[in-house]
Simulated scan of single mutants.
Amino acid sequence: MYEPIRTKSVHTVAAESVDFPHRTREEELDIQLAGHLAALLTVTDELRQLPSRDEELDAAAEELAAQVARLRGGHPPVRAAVAAADPASQAVALHRRAHALAGRALVVAASRADTAAAILAARRMEYHAGAQRLVSA
């Protein structure tokens, strides 16, 4: 009545199957954290293009790039030139997005006990929360 199973089960113990690469929890967290910080770097670069640009954004961009490179084994992040159509009207949205990305990075950094990345993410959250209030006022 039923067709016999002809393939191996996918529910095998990882030690038995060496068909695909396995990553540790720490490696997965490194990948997640690098992704969140790279996204935050992209938004920071967009904010740096605004006419009312803050000098702190330049230093933050360099710190973010250094952390991403550290997490990616020394490979620097790809950075593209940003050309915003109407950057002044996007400032609040960019700060809001940057705040959310910094929050995600903080959660992952705390999970993997990466103090340097957690401090950087927390500082970025504070900055963007304050910037949202200033821009929207």
Rank of each mutant, 00 (worst) to 15 (best):
M1S: 15
Y2T: 12
Y2A: 15
E3S: 11
E3T: 11
I5N: 07
I5T: 08
I5D: 04
R6M: 08
S9Q: 04
S9D: 02
H11S: 01
T12K: 14
V13Q: 12
V13L: 15
A14N: 09
E16A: 15
E16F: 13
D19F: 04
H22Y: 14
R23D: 07
R25N: 06
E26C: 07
E26M: 12
E28H: 05
D30I: 04
D30F: 08
I31V: 11
L33D: 01
L33F: 05
A34N: 09
G35P: 02
G35F: 00
G35D: 01
A38V: 05
A39P: 00
A39F: 03
L40D: 03
T42K: 03
T42G: 04
V43F: 10
D45R: 14
R48Y: 04
Q49G: 05
L50I: 10
L50C: 06
S52W: 01
A59G: 08
A60C: 05
A60E: 03
A60Y: 09
E62Y: 08
E63F: 13
E63V: 12
E63L: 15
L64D: 01
L64C: 09
L64S: 08
A65I: 04
A65Y: 06
A66F: 03
Q67K: 15
R72L: 03
R72E: 05
R72P: 01
R72S: 11
H75A: 14
P76S: 03
P76H: 09
V78T: 10
A81M: 06
V82N: 02
A83K: 03
A83C: 10
A84Y: 01
A85I: 07
P87F: 06
P87S: 14
L94N: 04
H95P: 01
H95Y: 07
R96C: 01
H99P: 02
H99Q: 12
A100N: 02
A102S: 12
A102Q: 11
G103W: 02
R104W: 00
A105D: 00
V107H: 11
S111H: 08
R112G: 05
R112I: 00
A113T: 11
D114K: 14
D114C: 01
T115Y: 13
A116N: 10
L120N: 14
L120T: 13
A122D: 11
A122G: 10
R124D: 08
M125V: 08
M125R: 15
H128V: 09
A129N: 08
A129D: 06
A129P: 00
G130Q: 08
A131P: 01
R133D: 08
R133G: 02
R133F: 14
L134N: 06
L134V: 11
V135C: 11
A137P: 07
